[in-house]
Amino acid sequence: MTPLAITFLVLAIVIVWGGLVASTVFLRRSPDVAEYPAGALDDHREDEAPIEHDT
């Protein structure tokens, strides 16, 4: 492998594994949301059927 390929390999490994480590540390510090935002009014979307097209 050329030095440029090794450099990009190391850079890619650092980005991927660094992101994994950073996200793990973030989740360890704040694992759960303390309070969820207030929800909107119920709009009854589940009461409507999907659109049916004549084919």
Rank of each mutant, 00 (worst) to 15 (best):
V10T: 15
L9S: 01
A38Y: 05
D32N: 02
I13D: 02
P31M: 02
I6A: 15
E46L: 13
G18M: 01
A34I: 14
L27G: 04
I51Q: 03
A22Q: 01
P50N: 00
V16R: 15
E46R: 03
I15W: 03
G18C: 01
D43M: 13
S30A: 06
R29K: 15
P31S: 00
T2R: 12
I13F: 13
H53E: 13
H53S: 14
W17M: 05
E35R: 14
R28P: 04
A40H: 03
A38S: 10
W17H: 12
L41D: 15
V16L: 11
A12W: 13
V33G: 02
V33H: 12
I51L: 11
P50W: 09
L4M: 07
E52H: 05
P3I: 05
L27Q: 11
H44W: 09
V10C: 08
M1N: 07
L9G: 03
P31N: 00
S23I: 14
P31D: 00
V21D: 00
I15P: 02
D54C: 02
L41T: 08
L4G: 05
W17T: 13
P3F: 11
G39C: 08
D47R: 12
E46S: 09
T7F: 11
A49Y: 12
V10W: 11
R29M: 12
A40M: 12
V10R: 01
L41G: 01
A40F: 05
D54I: 11
T55V: 14
E48F: 06
V14Y: 06
P31W: 10
R28I: 10
D47Y: 05
A38C: 01
A49F: 07
P37C: 02
I15C: 03
Y36E: 12
V10A: 00
G39F: 13
A12I: 06
G39Y: 07
E35G: 14
V14H: 01
V25I: 13
I13P: 05
I13S: 03
P3L: 09
I51D: 02
P3W: 02
D43L: 08
Y36L: 14
T55W: 08
P50V: 11
V16I: 15
E52T: 04
A34N: 03
A38Q: 10
I15T: 13
E35M: 01
F26M: 06
Y36K: 01
S23F: 15
V25E: 05
L11Q: 04
P31A: 00
V16F: 15
T7V: 08
P37R: 01
G18W: 02
V33E: 11
F8D: 06
F8L: 09
A34V: 15
L27V: 06
T2L: 15
F26E: 02
I51W: 11
E52F: 04
W17G: 00
L11W: 13
A34P: 14
G39T: 09
L4R: 14
M1H: 12
A34L: 14
S30E: 06
E46I: 06
I51T: 02
G18A: 01
D42F: 09
A22H: 00
G19V: 11
A34C: 12
M1V: 04
T7S: 05
A40R: 03
L27A: 05
D54V: 11
G19W: 14
L20F: 15
I6T: 15
M1T: 07
G19C: 02
E48P: 04
